[in-house]
Every structure is written in C-alpha cells, then in structure tokens.
C-alpha cells in the first residue's frame, strides 16, 4: 500500500499519455517496468505484427496476467517467425510456405502450428522422407 506524499514530488516533465520509443525492444523494457506497478483490473490492448504482439503477450504473462487481461490485434505484415524443430534455430521474416533454415540449411515447411512461448511457427524438413521431394514455393504470409 502506498501512503504518504511520494507522489507529490514535482515531475520536471508534463504528464504524458502518448510515449514515443526508439524500438519495439525499448518499448518492451518500459512495458515490463510498468506492468510490475499495475494492479488487478488492468487491461492491455496491443496492435502490431504477430511477432510484436506475442512479445507483448510474453511480457504480460511474465507479469502474472492471463489471457483474459490482454487483447491483441494484428495489423501490418503477416510474416512468420519459424522455429526449426530439428536444429532449434529461428528464421525471421518468412513470407513463403517453404524456407531455408538459417541454422542447419534444411528446406523447412512452415506449419500452421504456433507456439506462444517460443513466439514462432514450427518448421520441419519438407523432404526428410525422400531427398528432393518437395512442393512448389508459394508466397502466403506477406
């Protein structure tokens, strides 16, 4: 419980309702600090690309919030972040159904299976059964 006059210390800056940040990482640092001060009943609304949204969700969960306490709205690019299930390397900015893993070089098929914890879709080697047996590349996630 906060009592006393600490809030009366004059701030050199005017009260802001809109904050600018240098980057999404910068914003997330501030967000984590802010959530640590918040109380039950707080709601968070975020809009942005999928990767950003799940970073925000991760910060919310880490602060003890549940799914009912934040709302995410996707806007902008539908690019996917891919987790290579074989070598565990992430490949960012994927717009196609197939992608070369930036870690092990396998041709990965991009599944619709998404992990919020890893903030990534799963990729597995498309031609693991028969080398070279693959499907046409299509741009699906722009």
């Amino acid at each position: 419980m906060i009592e006393g006059h600490s809030r009366a210390i004059p701030s050199p800056l005017p009260e802001e309702t809109v904050h600018g940040f240098r980057s999404a990482s910068h914003l997330l640092i501030a967000l984590r600090r802010r959530l640590a001060q918040e109380h039950m009943g707080f709601r968070l609304y975020a809009a942005g690309t999928e990767g950003f949204l799940w970073d925000v969700a991760g910060a919310c969960e880490a602060a003890g919030m549940g799914k009912a306490e934040y709302r995410l709205c996707h806007s902008g690019s539908a690019q996917r972040r891919i987790f290579c299930v074989h070598c565990r390397t992430m490949t960012d900015g994927v717009t196609t159904n197939l992608v070369t893993c930036s870690g092990c070089g396998a041709q990965l098929f991009v599944r619709d299976h998404f992990s919020r914890r890893l903030n990534a879709f799963m990729g597995f080697q498309i031609d693991a059964e028969v080398p070279g047996e693959t499907i046409p590349v299509e741009e699906l996630y722009r």
């Binding site: 299930v85 074989h86 396998a106 799963m122 597995f124 080697q125 693991a128 059964e129 028969v130």
Partner: peptide
C-alpha cells in the same frame, strides 16, 4: 520425434 524426423522419415520409403 519431429526433432529427429530427418533420421526416421526415410524409413517410410
């Protein structure tokens, strides 16, 4: 496992 799919996938053929 999916982790080792490149190891066991070829068995299917």
């Amino acid at each position: 496992s999916p982790e080792n799919y490149p190891v066991w996938g070829p068995d299917r053929t």
